[in-house]
């Protein structure tokens, strides 16, 4: 098992109801597995965020679901309001 710190921002934090949490995931966990886990855990609002939000693993945006997870994940939705 590996401990991943997940930080949620803006609409992602609203969907999760927390700004940050620690998740125990299998040692070979990937970006895709975490996305599925979060979608299952937090439902439609989180799915909407995950559809367009950025998934940063240890400070780099990762789009390939097969990317292995690191110790820290940040989930940040884009918005364009001005």
């Amino acid at each position: 098992m590996t401990m991943v710190t997940v930080r949620y921002f803006a609409a992602a934090a609203e969907a999760a109801g927390v700004e940050e949490e620690f998740l125990d995931l299998p040692g070979d966990a990937t970006v895709g597995m975490l996305r599925d886990e979060l979608a299952a855990r937090y439902g439609a609002d989180m799915q909407r965020v995950l559809a367009s939000g950025s998934f940063l693993v240890d400070g780099t945006v990762q789009r390939d679901p097969a990317t292995p997870l690191g110790g820290a994940v940040d989930i940040l939705p884009p918005f364009a309001g001005g």
């Binding site: 921002f9 803006a10 367009s52 950025s54 945006v61 918005f79 364009a80």
Partner: peptide, 28 residues
């Protein structure tokens, strides 16, 4: 950028650091 109760601010500068596309590579 702003929406509802949230805002984001960043600086992009080629050669000095990453750009907007390094944070949001594809638009929604």
């Amino acid at each position: 950028a702003i929406l509802r109760y949230h805002g984001q601010v960043g600086v992009a500068w080629r050669g000095e650091g990453p750009g907007y596309r390094d944070l949001f590579p594809v638009p929604p």
